[in-house]
Design a protein around this nucleic acid. Structure first.
Lengths: 202, 202
DNA sequence: ACCTCAATGTATCCACTGGATATATAATGA
DNA sequence: TCATTATATATCCAGTGGATACATTGAGGT
């Protein structure tokens, strides 16, 4: 039972991650605080350390939940265009969560098998949707990497405000064009920059 | 004079940034601490607040210094291949500093004109080295964006350990190939992944 | 049914951080 | 010379991640 009447909570780990996800979705700019989350779960802050070893362990669990959400969002996309759209939409709809996920790469997977498994599922979906079936493995991986670099780089620049402020829709269209996936009937984009780049005549 | 004998320091702002740069170069993983830097400069931690308004102001100054270093590294590159090489080398040689720089996009430039000016110089160099002269402005900007997405995304994935661990040299060659800038006589790269991607037969 | 024990939660401490306020000292310009 | 302004200090605060010691509980073995 998930009751919280007694001394024990029931499923603290799950609720803590859920609170963190809600927090990130709410768009608060401050970093997640273990204490705040524990308090919100009605528990002493030190209780969290029983489930996740330390802050990084907790964030790994949050990131794993994020990858699971992303995998769910990517399910069913079978070709590059819809895949990129879904991927971009996820990142744009969950910018803070996306950041947490992307700050935890394969390099930090040791000791966090759940995170690795969740991320691997996303990679499998990427391979299926992006890479031509007939090609050899190396070519397929190359295609996924190319996509990932573009999407990751473009989304990062967009989310951190490097690019001219634009609607998400407009950005995705832009990204599709730059990635060579444009469907041809989107209007030509305007300048990419936040403001006139140096060298422009006023 | 940069003397530090008396009550006043001489040039605290410059020394604080220099200490931060040295710290980032030393590769310590912990985030910069104003107090630690002030102590290392032989000064009360509150003295820094006179020069930079708050922590974010200090980091903006550090990032600006980083952009200046990057601009210096990019000076003289006149075509895409050498530009990408220099850019990648800078990021790989100064990963922590690169992170600080990239976390502070145009969106945060308000109130930090120095940071903006330094970043604009890098953009001007990018335009000059990457974009064909004959093309119209929109095409040139598109070329720079395409490069930046790839480089930024690829470097981010490499630095955060998402990709298979490889030497920097190897990674740059890989990046050149994926970006379509390979000079043709580099050996074919191996798999990109940290470990066998899902779907491989063992 | 009992009873041990591992899992989970609490209480209390610590070092450290960014930041605020009030004060002291030095440099500068009228 | 002297007031003003820039710079540095002293001292406080709330908040954070983490450590140690202890309390409570539920599950398994007998």
């Amino acid at each position: 039972m998930a009751g919280r009447a007694g001394y024990h909570h029931g499923d603290l780990a799950a609720e803590a991650v859920a609170i963190a996800l809600a927090d990130l979705a709410a768009g608060s700019a401050e970093p997640l605080s273990l204490r705040a989350i524990a308090t919100r779960a009605g528990v002493a802050h030190r209780a969290l350390y029983n489930h996740f070893g330390d802050r990084e362990g907790f964030l790994a669990a949050v990131a794993a939940a994020g990858y699971a959400k992303l995998a769910a969002a990517l399910q069913g996309t079978t070709e590059p265009l819809s895949f990129l759209r879904s991927y971009a939409r996820f990142a744009l709809d969950n910018p803070a969560l996306y950041r947490v996920m992307m700050e935890r790469g394969y390099g930090q997977f040791e000791g966090h098998p759940d995170l690795r498994a969740a991320a691997d599922k996303v990679i499998a979906l990427s391979l299926a949707a992006l890479a031509p079936d007939g090609e050899d493995d190396e070519t397929r991986r190359r295609a996924v990497m190319r996509f990932w670099m573009m999407a990751h780089g473009g989304l990062g620049l967009h989310l951190s405000g490097v690019l001219r402020r634009r609607s998400d829709e407009e950005f995705v269209d832009e990204l599709l064009q730059i990635a060579g996936l444009a469907d041809g009937n989107t209007p030509p984009p305007q300048s990419l920059w936040t403001s006139p780049p140096p060298g422009d005549k006023p």
